[in-house]
Design a protein around this nucleic acid. Sequence first.
DNA 1: ATACTGAATATCGGATACAATAATCAAGCG
DNA 2: CGCTTGATTATTGTATCCGATATTCAGTAT
Lengths: 219, 219
Amino acid sequence: MKIDSVDIAQTSSAASIICEALKKAIVEGRLKDGEPLRQDEIARMFNTSRIPVREALTMLEQQGLVATQRYKGAVVAGISPDEAAEIWDFRALVEGHVIEVAVPRMTAGTLAEAQAHLAAFAAAAGPMEWGDWNRRFHMVLYRASGLTYHLGIIEKTLDRVDRYIRAQLSLSNGLARADAEHRAILDACAAGDAGQAGALTRQHILGAKANLLANLRAD
Amino acid sequence: MKIDSVDIAQTSSAASIICEALKKAIVEGRLKDGEPLRQDEIARMFNTSRIPVREALTMLEQQGLVATQRYKGAVVAGISPDEAAEIWDFRALVEGHVIEVAVPRMTAGTLAEAQAHLAAFAAAAGPMEWGDWNRRFHMVLYRASGLTYHLGIIEKTLDRVDRYIRAQLSLSNGLARADAEHRAILDACAAGDAGQAGALTRQHILGAKANLLANLRAD
DNA sequence: ATACTGAATATCGGATACAATAATCAAGCG
DNA sequence: CGCTTGATTATTGTATCCGATATTCAGTAT
């Protein structure tokens, strides 16, 4: 076999492509809470029938990103202050644990990558990029844990709340504060102090929770 | 309005009915790991077309209960020893935390209900019932926490592994040991000792993990 | 006998068409 | 004028049909 081979496997169906596109729009906050998602309209956007659209919406509903009512359609699922408070507590619990497992397994490459994401975060120009680099920074550290199941749950949870995190980063001091805390977390990781990394991560998340709730209440 | 009104709302579509039925069969272990799920076969069973079947399968895939390959179909998703180990650690983390939150919020009714489930558990006759009452016992205690998001994650995780728990309960000493540990947990709850309840729950889960891994390795 | 080739079958992904339900709106009645 | 009632429209849920892909198996050549 002397020719170069390309993996031609179509691993992605129309449904999953549509799902990913919608998910991205929701996570980035381009689709607002409660905004209805019409099957016909989406089908026309992607030049497909409604069948794959319906499967995409089914996936998103399972992920908690949209809420569907029979014969009434799907809307972007919002989040109540109570839910928000609980989800941030959950994040502190799980992400705090995962980073403690991760620290002793981090390589020089892990730390370098996290450092690079931190620099990109500081240099980024708008809420979209801030959110992206923020998330990448944390996930690189978590991924060193090798805890696949935990990581999947974390990703799902972040998908659910990423747009609120982006909004918080945009507020006054949000960016500077996050940056300082990120550096402290990374220092603890570099020092191999798992307990400290866990404690700082929990503080980071619970501090964000307090800010978020204060702002949600302001509305 | 003087007549009795019945909620005639059809909250359940064909897809969700099929999904629940398949989920029950998988969770109870009646469908074995790797067993293929043919669309038209299932469609015939429920007297529907394949469309709602496909939506049910996408739901189950999102929940991690089936694995789908494009143009090849869906099979019941098994679990590797590594995944099992990680999932039990996750359970210890989350369920341990949730019960600590729950203890101070438990009412006399909560404890009575848990007690009743314990009795039913001891009186039950086979692996199916053991599994059901075991799960109900734990969930009643967790539910007192009021932590909706955490509870949802716990339910999803238990769906994923319930058949393995059932299998473990059927093994020698599995039942007696679980019963003794359940009583200890309930006692701690009744005494209002959240820390103790959390510690016992974690032991309960991590002990089960050790048993499970020993048995998985024996194969 | 074995390995390759190609047709036949089984199964899945998607498009079109129809049925069921909800939302809108106009007409009639008090 | 407000409320109800019925028809119209919009949207969703499901069935049927068609094209795409994978699998199986018979046939053939080496």
